[in-house]
Design a protein around this nucleic acid. Sequence first.
DNA 1: CGGCAGTTTGATGTTACTCAATTTAAGTGG
DNA 2: CCACTTAAATTGAGTAACATCAAACTGCCG
Lengths: 236, 236
Amino acid sequence: MPELSLCVSCPNRGRGICGAVLEGASEGAQLPSQWQRYQVIRAGRPVVTRNDPVEEVFILCEGWAFRYLQLPDGRRQILNFLLPGDVLSCTSMFQELSSFSAMALTDIQVSRFRRADIQTFSNFNSGILAAVGRTVFAEQKHADELTATLGKRVAEERIAYLLAQLTRRIAARSVIREQRYPFPLRQQHIADAVGLTAVHVSRVVSTFRERGVIEISGGVLQVLDPVELERIGAPH
Amino acid sequence: MPELSLCVSCPNRGRGICGAVLEGASEGAQLPSQWQRYQVIRAGRPVVTRNDPVEEVFILCEGWAFRYLQLPDGRRQILNFLLPGDVLSCTSMFQELSSFSAMALTDIQVSRFRRADIQTFSNFNSGILAAVGRTVFAEQKHADELTATLGKRVAEERIAYLLAQLTRRIAARSVIREQRYPFPLRQQHIADAVGLTAVHVSRVVSTFRERGVIEISGGVLQVLDPVELERIGAPH
DNA sequence: CGGCAGTTTGATGTTACTCAATTTAAGTGG
DNA sequence: CCACTTAAATTGAGTAACATCAAACTGCCG
């Protein structure tokens, strides 16, 4: 969801990965590239941890990650998944302590900007402000849709919502090869994202497979019936 | 949640209502008051409607309102409740079509600023930007907490979460008279906010009453055991 | 004194969870 | 290439939480 034109000299730029989310960035609405630093984080390692101080805003350049909240009993709720080009969260631009945790789902590469640099720079560059505004809007809209999905919809619809949304986002930033998408999620991740148990996710995914809607295996999601998936998962 | 220092010459300013949420606003971080307009909206009437164009950012000066999403089958999910001093949503600052609907819960009074005015003004006033940033952060944090609550917690915890959060917010902007709070919500509103049915809300609220935790009647919420309510509803 | 909206209560149904066992898939080292 | 190991997915049986339906009750207002 979050798209922001800060990731200017991402190693993937020009290879169609970060580039895909940069559309809409006006000229001059980019931070000086020398301000960013790169970091590689291995799958399963934390990116930021709730209540820890964060000096920087993270942009995901490569791989998948997710934001989540941990409950005292150890259960976690995944708030959203992050794909290449996504800002971890725009709110990191305004807050010194992180209000959420984030973890690398695959090996990832992140680009980091100091919050202070962004704030200074955005004071005399309204293009950045506009980009931040669009991103904030997208983040909030996504959060609202998720709230409605968790509050009012059954398991089948929740899972279809997540899968439909992910395929749309993956397709938007890569060359679409028929209906096959790279898919590093375990069923436990789906469960934590849509508020179900992994066992129940398994059952629902099985019925989707039997009905010829989707097929997940070997880290690849195949959408056999995109229309049906959208119909079940449509948020409105 | 959303607190923003735009509501400068609200009719309630000085009477401790809007004033309560203005703390933290630095000098000069206020929009010229002649840019705002007032409007009264009666209980049950729409404030904004999803997909309608909105030229203005709304700030609630008096009464209660709520943001919601309507599902095609007529069911609705309430996203949050708005109390005096709250911005309807900061994202209205960046988007021309509303992504949500909002409705007055009681008779309300709103203050309206043209989006264009705010954008222009914020370009040469970094105090406004900081205030917007804080508000955006608060909105997102609230949305994240709600997601975790809907995804991972049982009926009793969801309802306690909502009531605890509301009492904190009401207390923050009014003189606290013992543990009695004005409470214009019907049980159906609670149900739509936390993803339950009104019938089940009734049962849970009854057990709270029997256990001496709260008491709702005559538009007043009495918190008899604030510690217990917080304990059940604590988001983490 | 109706009438109406909101709440409460009971009986029953459905959805999703829990626990536990089994199967499949993915590595790993010989 | 094949045993061995381990994580993930699947399946079944039993249960808990919440929804649904319908009826009775309460308070409020004209």
